[in-house]
Nucleic acid binder design. Structure first.
Lengths: 220, 220
DNA sequence: TTCACTTCTTAAGATATCTTAATTTTTATA
DNA sequence: TATAAAAATTAAGATATCTTAAGAAGTGAA
């Protein structure tokens, strides 16, 4: 409030009012994010508002511009990232210099390099925003403190990790049972809207097909 | 003790003594298994002897003969299986009728069909012993009760699941970065002793190579 | 609107891997 | 030990997918 009055003095009423409204909007946007993560958390485990408050207070929110990086290859991945909205990809560079996409992640997904996050190895992959993306960041350090103060959170991550594992195994089943063409049609059937947000050569990379061959497959 | 005296009467001393020693040996074998799982558990989380006792009391031990099944396709996988010793494989039958091996598991590994176990779907894969195998079984029901009475156990499985996910992702990296030949040499370099315990056509299946082609690769 | 850059398509030749089927080798069982 | 069953090898032809290289189409910024 001191700040606000000070601003009124040096900026005049109109500008200060604008600033106030902006701050107000940010606050409600914060609340929206908190609501979103609460809803997500409570899908799996029953948290109280107080617990959500405590957890939320440890999260850092950040907006990543299109093409900017959340994590770069070689860095140690010290956080787990929850996507509020937007779209990111996780990829690495193979020995021939080609980008290989291992994962896309949308709103209400966690994304991290699990191996780097857990074992503190330099990450072999990067995470990059494909659209302007809002994320909530939980550092490993804070997460481990929270596991102790709120054991239910450990349950949440036990469940979330199980689901990640299941998703991973399902993806493998698709890859190993299907040829290139079937993988592509399976993807467009399951995520028709998602396809439109990503350039085709990235789809090809994710499906482990060369862009040229995917182009050929589409002809038929 | 009543049973023992009864046996003495009908069988005579020598036979009863033999039976007693056998029971005695089984007891110590039980203790060995308990020691093994304690050691394994304490690698990740610090459990007290009392907690281990409580957990162990919910485990069922079982010996699976070579070629027998722990889980069959179509069943709902109601337990998680900890391998004391031996060797099992997890596999499914693809649309051409070929067995596809997705995982081998050795001592100190958990094996289950995660999707079936978590979501209570009929399992798409089977788990079969390739050698005489001793396992400890924890049912989902008991596990969930234990998560509540011993929250540390939830931590254990959070960590174990993270490690499974990491292992899964590593396997994928190998599959997608390497050609058939390199996958094979990578496997024999990492698990030279393991190769000798499994027929080559199963190695081929695990590596997603036809047995004929693997045979050809080995020539060079 | 134009220019530069990114993305997509096309096509020809190359290659890894599979399929089929027959033969040999190894292992298990009577 | 003999025999049957299981596993591994060989080879020829087939196919899916990649590589390279070039051009076409689309997109964003000046």
């Amino acid at each position: 409030m001191v700040t606000l009055i000070f601003l009124l003095k040096i900026l005049g009423h109109k500008t200060a009012l604008f600033l106030y409204l902006t701050i107000g909007n940010n606050k409600s946007h914060e609340n929206l994010m908190k609501e979103q993560i609460k809803k997500y958390f409570c899908r799996y485990v029953d948290f109280s508002d107080i617990e959500i408050d405590e957890i939320y207070s440890k999260l850092i929110s950040k907006t990543i511009q299109k093409k900017d990086y959340i994590l770069r290859e070689g860095q140690i991945c010290k956080s787990n990232y929850f996507i509020i909205n937007g779209l990111v990809r996780s990829f690495y560079i193979d020995d021939k210099g080609n980008e290989k996409i291992t994962q896309f992640a949308l709103e209400n997904w966690w994304v991290t390099n699990m191996e780097s996050f857990i074992k503190k190895n330099p990450s072999l992959s990067s995470i990059q925003a494909l659209e302007k993306t809002e994320i909530l960041i939980i550092s490993k350090e804070e997460l481990e403190k929270l596991y102790i103060s709120i054991p239910k959170l450990e349950r949440l991550f036990r469940i979330v990790t199980e689901n990640m594992l299941i998703a991973n195994q399902r993806k493998n089943d698709v890859y190993f049972q299907m040829n290139s063409k079937d993988r592509y049609t399976s993807l467009i059937n399951h995520f028709p809207n998602f396809i439109q947000r990503v350039p085709q050569y990235m789809i090809a990379s994710y499906l482990e097909i060369t862009p040229e061959y995917l182009s050929e497959l589409k002809k038929n």
